[in-house]
Amino acid sequence: MTLLAPVEKPAPPVEKRPVRRRVFGYPRRASVWTYAALLAVVAGSVFPLYWSLVVSSQTSEAVAQVPPVLVPGGHLFDNIARVFDSTDFGQALLNSLIVSGSVTVSVVFFSTLAGFAFAKLRFRGRKVLLVLAIATSMVPQQLGIIPLYLLMAKLGWTDHLAAVIVPGLVTAFGVFFMTQYLGRAVPDELLEAGRVDGCSTFGLYWHVVLPAARPAAAVLGLFTFMQAWNDFFWPLVVLQDNATVQVALSSLASGYTTDYTLTLTGTLLATLPILVIFMLLGRQIVGGIMQGAIKG
């Protein structure tokens, strides 16, 4: 604490600012405490993942050592090789990419479209329909799988990726999320101005709403992708020939007993691609949030 305090003193932002600036800029400059708190939060977020890496690089005997093993060992590649021996992991990764990619694009597009209508357009039955859309997300989904499976069997889609993609193309959550966001982010005056300029409704959507929705779309897109990637229950039931990553993981657990080193190596491998996407796009997504919505 006493060690940290002096760091703050040499450069108080207030004095260094040009005189005409206000005393407090906005957003405010972070104090050492802010950094400390955030670092603690991030450490807590990262640790369980780090620890699963540690376990993945050990033999199964190391899992329960006291004091706990905190440094990676040398068995990571052995364990990875075992995962690829046990399942067709490459194909599963590709399948998951196809599913999650299609679902994400579709959810973002349709949610923004419907969110625009609900938030900014006047039409008969708007409120009722919105409540209906939200209400749909309240029913526990796990039990819908039997009728859904019957439907897929009728359509001949079982064992095809379409069986996982199509039910995911829209989500009530996405519509709700976009409705809430667009209601705030798009000023009515802007839309009025657009109408005066002769924009059609779709023109407004394309030229005004879509750009304004970008930060929210990035966030929704990321979350949708993650959710589709990590979805497990439904793909397991409906896909046997075209396993997604999570389904492939299920085959790693053996009949009577479970090898947690192997399972955790598998989950680590399944998380890796999404981690890479997160690293690449996450910057843009988080950056998108940063730029803020209210500009136009």
Partner: peptide
């Protein structure tokens, strides 16, 4: 818009993959 374009391209690519990747094998 760059992000959306990236996503769009990704989508187009995945659609093509879907067309040849999954059908009844």
């Amino acid at each position: 818009m760059r992000f959306l374009r990236t996503v769009g391209a990704l989508a187009a690519a995945t659609m093509m993959l879907t067309a040849c990747g999954s059908g009844g094998g």
